[in-house]
Design a protein around this nucleic acid. Sequence first.
DNA 1: TGCCAATTGTTGAACTTTCAATATTTTCGC
DNA 2: GCGAAAATATTGAAAGTTCAACAATTGGCA
Lengths: 169, 169
Amino acid sequence: MHIERAISASHSLTRVKTKSSIVAKPPSQDTPLNEHLAYLLAQANREINRQLEMRLAKEGVPVEQWRILKVLSDGNGRSMGELAEAVLLNHPTLTKIVDRMVSDALVYRVQDPKDRRKVLMFCSERGKILCQRLNSLAMSQEAHIVENYGNKSTNELKRLLESLIDSAN
Amino acid sequence: MHIERAISASHSLTRVKTKSSIVAKPPSQDTPLNEHLAYLLAQANREINRQLEMRLAKEGVPVEQWRILKVLSDGNGRSMGELAEAVLLNHPTLTKIVDRMVSDALVYRVQDPKDRRKVLMFCSERGKILCQRLNSLAMSQEAHIVENYGNKSTNELKRLLESLIDSAN
DNA sequence: TGCCAATTGTTGAACTTTCAATATTTTCGC
DNA sequence: GCGAAAATATTGAAAGTTCAACAATTGGCA
């Protein structure tokens, strides 16, 4: 494995040198951390998520709860499994967050009559109303990003992220 | 705040309609979750991070520890504050991860002689050797992404992420 | 039909992260 | 130079997440 990597690295290096040694850089063993895709994603995610978190704090709601409300706000029920997938949480974590939201009367559980292993989650009226306020806050954050970063870049970045996610599955 | 947003939203809507109603979509109050930049970043980060985690698991090392080793592997010491910034962790979390790494003899602490409030972190020889093996694993993951996603997209995405991060500061 | 494996969701224990408070050292105004 | 305020790192308690085990239900096949 190490050997194949070394070979492909020097291949790229050679090819690149014949063109330009500035534009595309060869994959090197000691690529700085901040040139790794995984790191850049983590950094960008951390920053944008922190901004969103601060906005949503006006309503005292964590980002995960906003995601849950948003998914359920179309009125259709979702099983815990579907919901976990949609909001990027694993099952036990979702269960516990949902417990809190049920206590706050934002969502409720219904046993699925078609398959009694499943629990269908629904958004309460109260949850829907809160969700609208949260949507405003989230939209205003995204507008703020677009202001500084530009509409074109934002759309291009979204497009690239979508296709990265596709290609990773 | 809500009002201003509503106004700027309808502005965009109007402007967009005169051009094309397909390419650029107006910011709508119920934009689906998976069209939000914050969500796409979280999703992409989750997926890529999970892949990297699986690779590094061959050496039994969490992603955060790889980052720490990578930053320190140039032999220069860093204060806990600098290190926390560089590896995207807050101070108490870093302190505790570093505690574990000191137990494993991967890094060590030295009191900064210039400013005795500070602690300088260094990478041990053992840490450097491990870091090289981890670098190979990380490079092979990135190569795998490039295979599926393409060199052009990868570089373009990195560029956009860097400039997003810049614009957010 | 009856049984075994797979699916779904929850629970409790272990582990990790975060928050607030603390200790130490430095900086700066007076 | 002294003392208050700021900077730096750590600690312990609280909160959150994850892992493994469990309970309930369904599906399939002998």
